[in-house]
Design a protein around this nucleic acid. Structure first.
Lengths: 365, 365
DNA sequence: AAGTCGTTTTTGATCGTTCAAATCCGCGGT
DNA sequence: ACCGCGGATTTGAACGATCAAAAACGACTT
């Protein structure tokens, strides 16, 4: 079995020293062109490939980004994070970096994992998703001066002023606002909203988008607005039930929803009530695509690029020092409304106990 | 800034040598209980954590599994691989192992990536998905003696006799066979099948399941069977179109499909023809769950466990030597039919050019 | 008292690379 | 001739751990 060649082997065949070989790889500009060519030939000839672990041990850089993979949320919602994961992986690949995944049942051991990954130079930085307000991971990372960026705002007092925490997020307010405005342009006069119970950073933001667009463009009383809005846990059934209530009580002529699950439920409820009306969901999941629902699409590729840019600058692989000045510390990206014609599907009778999925709805408080 | 403690620091505080500390971590049984306790106390006190890269450099083991993350297939189908990824990550976590992701636009550079990962002791083994017959990656891995396992059969002449290639797969034949049988039990007499064009390992296998169940349980001529089966590219529209043709020509009273996309299309087509009939899809995606379609569910957690067991044995983290004898080299797992009542949704008129998604259908050959 | 054996601990070398500093080399200036 | 200088290259040490072999220790024989 052939031994894997090392820098020394390359150095010997190219008649140079170890360090020169190393320089060809890491700082080509300091090597004379002629020598460089010679070394490169030797590298190709021997099929040399640097030993990652050795390099990391010495240089304390890993070209690797750590991502926590949280246990799969039921079906629909997990899709966004998976798409984000793909996007980050690809953007990282473009910089020659890789993604190290880890999970941890308990949050505590997740901190341990992250600590181990950092101390062992396994990762240069972390990309986190699904962070909550006051997330212990964030405090730990900040305290220990570990570079990280989150997909999702910290939802503190003034996120844009937060200079210790890099974040990228999608402007749910704008997304829902624009979707609502579009419906109104198309003739809607009473747009209903299905969202999640407060407090929920993302949820409240999306509701605000609907509310402000409605306020601004339609002459609706506060009572009207209150009647047109519902707060329920995520899920198709819950969406159907809530939409049904609104349809009876507040006569909406369109729906905007905080998720595609809710939107699908709303579309079904509308048909059940013998009405056909536009419904817009959120996240543009395959479900929305399959049944022809319009949906607000998050630009996950851009989110991924932006996240890496905040961490590593426009193109490098070195963590940008967080000097606390100048450089932007966050990015808020605009989503895009994907409009679809739901002519392909209509939603018929829904039975009393129809279970439109295998969602484990834990409590309804 | 505090320095990260090393084995030497621990050794010093515990009054032992480096190697003893190392032994406490890697071979506790050779250390006297009392000494071990002392060392462990020192470890806890200093908050020592082994340096992964140093360990890897010396021991040539990484406790890491490499997975290629292929560019996201459009919507629906990607879901299975993402669920698999999650499952593998969790099962790996239980063994104290982690997942390193990488992508590569071109297949060629993917080989390079894998070579680099292996040479750099970045990964101990690879888990591959979406392998094709005669996949160059497989040859390369086999030739270079790199441990790997695939989710998906090699689709060679006799996969079960293949002792050089570890694989896990789900028995699509059984899944579709049983789904078909179930429909027949429930009264169906002419079950239609929507699948993909041959040759396609998975696709042909699923079709065979339908065909043999139909042959065995129903008295159908070869001509009947041929008329009841369609081959189209994956997609909701394609499924609807094909189902529509079958409905006109062969009077099916139920459908079994090779994917949820096709199944959704079939359900829509059936409604369009004013018929209500059972439809079973494959993969149990969120789409099926959302619209209440029955579907064949792949046991991805089991697939993940089985894959790791083939590689590392029932519980360790060391690659089982592929001696070519005795130990099983593959596992074929049975899927499970998830039955749903589609009462919640009915599928209405479909317009001529309805685009029920943003699938980029490349060619129709 | 010396030899033997088994268990526990220590010692020195090594993994493959990069860092930091030293050396080499050619050239122009005094 | 000597010095200084900047660019190119080399040298020795270090990164933090494990491997392989040697040494220390105790108990038990002979």
């Amino acid at each position: 079995m052939r031994q894997v060649p090392t820098v020394d082997d390359v150095a010997r065949t190219a008649n140079v020293s170890r360090q020169t070989v190393s320089n060809v790889l890491n700082a080509p500009q300091v090597v004379r062109a002629e020598t460089r060519a010679r070394v490169e030939r030797a590298i190709a000839e021997l099929g040399y490939r640097p030993h990652g672990s050795a390099r990391r041990l010495r240089s304390r850089k890993s070209f690797t980004i750590g991502m926590a993979l949280d246990p799969l949320k039921n079906g629909i919602s997990g899709n966004v994070l998976d798409r984000f994961l793909h996007a980050v992986t690809e953007k990282a690949d473009e910089r020659g970096m890789r993604i190290l995944l880890f999970t941890a049942r308990e949050r505590h051991s997740q901190l341990d994992q992250m600590a181990a990954l950092r101390d062992g130079s396994d990762v240069d930085a972390f990309v986190l998703t699904g962070t909550e307000h006051g997330d212990p991971r964030i405090d730990w990372l900040t305290d220990n001066n570990v570079p990280f960026v989150t997909f999702g705002r910290p939802w503190g007092d003034d996120d844009f002023a937060d200079r210790t925490h890099l974040w990228v997020d999608v402007d749910g307010y704008a997304g829902v606002h624009d979707a609502t405005a579009r419906l109104i342009e198309q003739g809607a006069r009473r747009v209903g909203f299905l969202g999640w119970p407060s407090p929920s950073g993302t949820g409240d933001e999306r509701r605000r988008g609907w509310r402000e667009a409605s306020e601004r463009m339609l002459q609706l009383t506060d009572a009207d607005l209150a009647a047109l809005s519902a707060s329920v846990e995520d899920g198709v059934e819950q969406g159907a039930a809530a939409a049904s209530r609104l349809l009876e009580a507040a006569q909406p002529d369109a729906f905007v929803c905080a998720s595609d699950s809710l939107a699908l439920g709303a579309a079904m409820a509308a048909t059940r009530h013998g009405r056909r009306m536009p419904v817009v969901g959120y996240d543009n999941t395959p479900v929305a695509a399959a049944v022809g629902l319009s949906s607000v699409d998050q630009p996950l590729e851009e989110v991924a690029s932006a996240a890496l840019e905040l961490l590593f600058g426009p193109s490098g692989t070195d963590v940008v020092p967080r000097t606390g000045n100048e450089e932007p510390k966050n990015r808020l990206l605009a989503p895009r409304l994907v409009e679809r014609d739901p002519s392909g599907v209509s939603f018929g009778e829904i039975t009393g106990t129809a279970n439109a999925g295998n969602h484990t709805s834990k409590g309804t408080s």
